[in-house]
Design a binder for these strands. Structure first.
Lengths: 251, 251
DNA sequence: ATTTGACATTAACCTAGGTTAATTTCTATG
DNA sequence: CATAGAAATTAACCTAGGTTAATGTCAAAT
């Protein structure tokens, strides 16, 4: 991890963790959370644009996102990049259970980010002692797959306008629970090039498409702020289904 | 499930299961396997083109593939289809841990298929009593994501020839362990339309691209048989990495 | 206040892949 | 063996999105 990363002195107890509502420990009783806490090895704050791990390298930590934005991406030999997913508060990061296998993608912060760190060695032990956690992880991973499938459809079978509409709605709905007072405008730290590398287009065409969406009064994107101007039309354009994106189980 | 499906009288004991080498119970000791077997509710054989479950419907079974080919896909409102993954012997099917949520995709057999059936209600119980199984499932699910990410790169950032090369190599490498005596020719039940809906192209362009690959002596595809003619060039064309695709942990 | 570099925007042109549609194999079934 | 539906193949034409390249805007750093 980047050397500028600093381990904080301040250690939030897991029972007080603001992301507990969102992420992994959601359905665990209080007692379980306290026991799980001992597997944690620290909390750290990373500045924007920090590489957390690199594709091809072995990496021995697992993280829960506390605050911030992280992107996962793969780089091809020809230099092009495919962004796989944005990791937000409450999400799991770098889950790849076999520690000997090198990471198949890279992870980098887009904004300042706070992570909860688990050493990977403790994982099997955690699983054995707390099957509920294992079940919860499985659930989260299954939802990650569902999202990944949505991305496949988005890139494989939609045109440019539909792809952008989907991406905006997906992120909008994942950011909302973090900031309940949010209206139709959210922070949106992606550049147009990031967007392009997420939805399988070029940045020039993303720019063209953004203009067209803006001119039709669907969304407005500027200065790293995204405003949803016409939610219903955007939903129908994207073929968007909230279910596919939300992190919360229904219960 | 389709009514032509028949539950077989013959019940293979899990300890003798030929896919144990490939799939979920791989690293479990014999004793665990015997205990797990009681959660199984049956084994069934489905003819080709059978719908196993449909996107949007609740579905209450989990399966392990025994033999055959199944495809997972999503259908858009405009009628187009995106194939998400091919499920082969030893793979997990329909893993979506929350039983109340409708399936987000459909599953259909391409060939005659034998499945091992688990009712979903037993799942949490299985997790609690056998954390090793939970860990193994987590591992499999994590690998499914890795493959899904490869697909994203394939569709998002590669041209037609590269996409096909990748798909062929991926499937080739997943079929090999099932038939150790196989040479460079494997059974390949996908139609050109299936291929198109997998890699985000049209069937016409798949046909053109296939001709070009054949004329250059890279692969030959006809009568549902795929022959890898020039493995090294195919690998370099696809940017293919075996790791990304294999189901076996290294140990 | 100015410089610098990252990012956004636009225009002109081009091509990979899509569309339509006709023709030719296959393959399953009576 | 005859036939029909599914799948493959091909050609002619078209367009969504890619490429290149120039210009504009903003924000951090000196």
């Amino acid at each position: 991890m980047n050397t500028r990363a600093k381990k904080t002195n301040h250690q939030t107890p897991c029972t007080l963790c603001p992301v507990r509502q969102l992420g992994i420990f959601q359905r665990l009783p209080e007692a379980e959370v306290i026991k799980v806490q001992q597997y944690r090895s620290g909390q750290c704050v990373l500045p924007a644009k920090t590489l957390i791990y690199r594709q091809g390298e072995v990496h021995n930590h697992l993280y829960t996102m506390f605050t911030g934005w992280v992107m996962l991406y793969k780089t091809l030999s020809n230099g092009s990049r495919q962004i796989l997913r944005y990791v937000l508060a409450g999400d799991f990061l770098s889950f790849q259970p076999d520690a000997r296998v090198p990471m198949t993608h890279s992870a980098q912060t887009l904004t300042e980010t706070t992570l909860c760190v688990f050493p990977r060695q403790n994982l099997m032990q955690l699983f054995n002692e707390h099957p509920e956690v294992a079940a919860q992880i499985t659930l989260i991973t299954a939802r990650d797959i569902t999202l990944s499938y949505e991305y496949l459809v988005n890139i494989g079978r939609k045109n440019a306008r539909e792809r952008l509409a989907f991406l905006f709605l997906e992120i909008y709905h994942r950011v909302l629970p973090q900031f309940p007072e949010t209206g139709t405008t959210i922070m949106f730290p992606l550049t147009q090039e990031d967007i392009a590398d997420t939805v399988g287009l070029t940045l020039v065409h993303v720019n063209r498409t953004l203009r067209s969406l803006r001119e039709e009064g669907l969304v407005q994107l500027s200065h790293h702020k995204l405003t949803i101007l016409d939610y219903p039309r955007l939903v129908s354009l994207a073929g968007f289904n909230v279910q596919s994106v939300l992190n919360q189980p229904l219960l």
